[in-house]
Design a protein around this nucleic acid. Structure first.
Length: 580
DNA sequence: TCTATATCACCC
DNA sequence: AAACGGGTGATATAGA
């Protein structure tokens, strides 16, 4: 490892940076202070907010021969964007590197700066003190002279901790890949800053009308049952109601009544008395007030949580991120006046990756012909050569379940249930998949085997995952597709944000972009080109297609699965003008 | 009244 | 109901 110890010497300047800032409820960051330390000289400089406002340029070196080091750099880079500074040419993010080094392990200390230090036996700061200080920064808007000093000291102590961590981690860094991940953190900072445009006026109607609407609904329906306590469904009362009416009910392993919609569906087929209750439960579960953080400029902003999942995907909070909401609620995404949006997703991304990485010629052919599901049907002799999407819709659906399911080891039983076919047919189709794509299956088995032997897996740009006894083979099977899909998204995000594309958000296999109406078509063309190149690069030569959903003001975003529910709800809250 | 666990709904 | 990958979060209950 000593050969790598000096790898950071290649940089003229290494600046370790930490900002403190307030990021409240969808607003862009309000920068409080910054501390920067020059790694070589050890010189530390502190800047309070008023000094930062007066700095037209970044006060530490950010040129092509320099690097910035931070922990969770999207935060620092977001503050730099807020100040209007140029971003560093090179970023090393020790959070991303810590995740790469420990991904797959159970870390009792978590993934924060202190946790990363503690896990390496380098604990230094009291966590409780850190939390107290964070509150002081977040929930105050002015500070006494003493508090200023306190906050700057705290910020400086984080920079010191960062220095210790860099000392420890620098010999083990995979520098070129660390720089790629750092570059992605800059893309994250830009996407987080752009945010997702929201119909704020309609959202307000949701917030105001919702509670009343659902209370009325429960009152009306529950009069027949008496199983609700306010808005709460009470198991005990329902149990009693069932006993009184002599209705048997399935239970969970733990002995509780099963309450999922499938159970209600089956039971209400036998006991029609239950139907209104089922409908009520369905309506209520998806009806919670959206608590999206939306800034004064009408943009939904939340942490994208890069590198959070085992496969390296972003993992933003489902309730704070507009694309984490239920499909029908996304109708509140709407371009501002004069603007348009485009939702661009990779088509059948994981199949394209499986084809490219395995190098299976028939799977590549199936993907590139445009309809991998029907192509499988034909290659497996399950559909005639002249079958089309229209002539063999049902066959295509079955093939889709098979092709998608086998990417992560779906068994015959469950595949049969899901596709609505006999288990024997499911088994037969799985068999034919093996025969149609032998090279894919050999590659998949080899990947899992070597993962089990080496206790780790990695994607093409070095996102790693350690394997332990608790990992199921099916999880390992799916890793290459999901992790490399995340790589594809990262390089596309980098290219787009370093170009002139306004990227609102990444969504696992898609991007939402925004542009003024007259530039929208150009932006879409440009973005699709970028995504296509990313796909080609990651798969080693497969042409990954993209689909586009375009929304022009005054239109709104809508997921087709959510149209009915959306229309029901906007009527309920008395906003028929918003019917889609 | 708090926390831990189980179950469920939802997303790509 | 069900050996399908990666997740977040709400709700209900049991247990301390």
């Amino acid at each position: 490892m000593s050969t790598f110890a000096g790898q950071l010497d290649a940089f003229a300047h290494l600046s370790l940076v930490d900002f403190e800032f307030r990021a409240l409820n969808g607003s862009r960051p309000d920068v409080v202070c910054m501390v920067v330390r020059d790694y070589r000289s050890g010189e530390v400089r502190r800047y309070w907010r008023d000094e930062l406002v007066n700095l037209r340029e970044c006060p530490f070196p950010v040129g092509p021969t320099d690097a910035m080091v931070a922990f969770y750099a999207s935060a620092e880079l977001g503050c730099m964007l807020e100040r209007g500074w140029r971003l560093p040419s090179h970023v090393i993010d020790l959070f991303a590197e810590h995740r790469v080094q420990t991904n797959g392990l159970q870390l009792p200390t978590g993934n924060g700066l202190l946790g990363a230090l503690a896990w390496r036996g380098l604990a230094r700061i009291d966590v409780a003190a850190k939390d107290a200080m964070r509150d002081k920064i977040l929930y105050q808007s002015s500070w006494t002279q003493n508090e200023r000093t306190e906050i700057l000291d705290y910020c400086a102590s984080d920079v010191e901790a960062l220095t210790v961590l860099l000392d420890f981690m620098s010999p083990t860094l995979d520098l070129p890949r660390a720089l790629l991940r750092g570059r992605y953190m800059a893309a994250v900072a830009k996407m987080e800053r752009t945010g997702i445009p929201i119909d704020t006026e309609l959202r307000q109607s949701f917030v105001e009308g919702w509670q009343r609407a659902r209370v009325e609904l429960v009152k009306t329906v529950d009069a027949e049952y008496g199983v609700y306590d306010g808005l709460r469904f009470k198991l005990g009362r329902f149990d009693e109601w069932l006993r009184v009416h002599g209705i048997p009910w399935p239970r969970t392993d733990a002995g509780l009544l099963k309450l999922d919609d499938d159970t209600f569906k089956e039971q209400s087929a036998v006991w029609p008395l239950l139907k209104p209750l089922r409908e009520l439960r369905q309506a209520l579960t998806s009806m919670h007030v959206p608590q999206l953080p939306v800034g004064p400029d009408g943009r939904n902003r939340s942490l994208l949580a890069p590198f959070a999942s085992k496969t390296g995907r972003n993992q933003p909070s489902a309730k704070r991120f507009a694309f984490g909401l239920a499909a029908w609620q996304r109708g509140i995404i709407r371009p501002p006046e004069g603007w348009g949006l485009a939702y661009l997703d990779f088509s059948s991304q994981e199949i394209g990756i499986a084809a490219g990485l395995s190098g299976d010629p028939r799977l590549i052919e199936a993907y590139e012909c445009g309809d991998p599901y029907l192509a499988f049907g034909k290659q497996a002799g399950f559909a005639p050569p002249d079958a089309t999407r229209e002539s063999h819709a049902r066959v295509r659906d079955i093939c889709k379940t098979v092709v998608l399911g086998l990417n992560y080891g779906l068994g015959a039983e469950r595949m049969a249930y899901q596709a609505g076919i006999a288990p024997s047919l499911a088994a037969e189709l799985i068999q034919r998949h093996h025969i149609a794509y032998p090279r894919y299956w050999r590659w998949s088995e080899d990947t899992v085997t070597s993962a089990l032997l080496s206790n780790q897996m990695s994607s093409i740009f070095g996102w790693r995952r350690k394997i332990t006894e608790i990992d199921r083979p099916t999880s390992l099977m799916n890793f290459p597709m999901q992790a490399n899909g995340a790589e594809m998204m990262r390089i596309a995000a980098i290219a787009a944000t370093e170009g002139r594309i306004e990227v609102c958000a990444p969504v696992h296999d898609a991007f939402l972009i925004a542009a003024p109406l007259e530039q929208l078509d150009d932006a879409i063309r440009h973005m699709r080109e970028i995504m296509s190149r990313a796909g080609y690069h990651v798969t080693g030569g497969v042409h990954i297609r993209t689909d586009a959903k375009v929304i022009r003001y005054p239109g709104r975003y809508m997921d087709e699965r959510g149209v009915d529910m959306w229309n029901r709800v906007v009527r309920l809250i008395d906003r028929p003008d918003a019917i889609y």
